[in-house]
Design a protein around this nucleic acid. Structure first.
Length: 207
DNA sequence: GTAGTGATTTTCT
DNA sequence: GAAAATCACTACA
């Protein structure tokens, strides 16, 4: 079942948690073309203009406009001049928020994903990071604003029961002041496909 | 195994 | 002009 727009039009933390275990699917090319997919194992929530880590904290601009639009669309942006990151827009129109898809466990089209990733042979290196998964699944800014109910990019519920979910502070947002330590990153505990494994850090709590 | 650093360009100040 | 929701590579243990 493809997740409907209503799935995304909810509190962002709920969407971030519920997306764990869902399947991200990318389809393209002519006449059937290709189909790539992977189970989502890591997400992060970015919530509103008050959240100093959220791009919308600087207000509405050409880049952040999608986040102010309806839920269930994609927000794809370029980071560090080289990589793209994929988000799902959440909440009511007018309230800027999104869930960053940070890691997937590859399911379908693994051979093609390896080619997209410059011949990388390890499945754990195909989707264990927001830039990596976009490269593997051929997601770039052409898909910014795309409807996440298809036909190029969507997320399905296949009834997968993810392992235990943990939370942690978000990655790479040390500049975000009081919002730096918010435990708004969600990931499958122990998965080999998440972007970073826990170090000696007992501040992370069970969800 | 961990730590440090350069690549590259859009975006907003 | 500075910073950025990252990654790959190198050096070293």
């Amino acid at each position: 079942m493809i997740l409907p727009a209503g799935f995304y039009r909810r509190p962002t933390l709920d969407v971030a948690a519920d997306l764990i275990g869902k399947v991200l699917v990318r389809s393209g090319g002519r006449g059937g073309g290709f189909r790539l997919s992977g189970t989502i194992v890591e997400t992060e929530a970015y919530i509103g203009e008050d959240d100093l880590a959220c791009h919308a904290s600087r207000g509405r601009t050409a880049r952040t406009a999608v986040m102010y639009g309806p839920a269930g669309r994609s927000y794809v942006y370029l980071i560090y001049g080289m990589y793209c990151c994929l988000n799902a827009v959440t909440e009511d129109p007018g309230f800027p928020a999104a869930v960053l898809i940070r890691a997937i466990e590859p399911l379908e089209g693994i051979e093609r994903m390896m080619r997209n990733r410059n011949g990388n042979k390890r499945t754990t290196e195909l989707g264990s990071g927001p830039g990596k998964l976009c490269q593997a699944m051929a997601i770039d800014r052409d898909l910014n604003g795309a409807d996440l109910t298809g036909p190029e990019l969507w997320i399905e519920d296949r009834g997968i029961q993810p392992g235990p979910i943990r939370t942690s502070p978000r990655i790479g947002v040390d500049y975000a002041g009081a919002y730096r330590d918010k435990p708004w990153r969600m990931f499958v505990d122990g998965s080999a496909h998440v972007s970073k494994r826990p170090s000696q850090d007992n501040t992370w709590r069970k969800l």
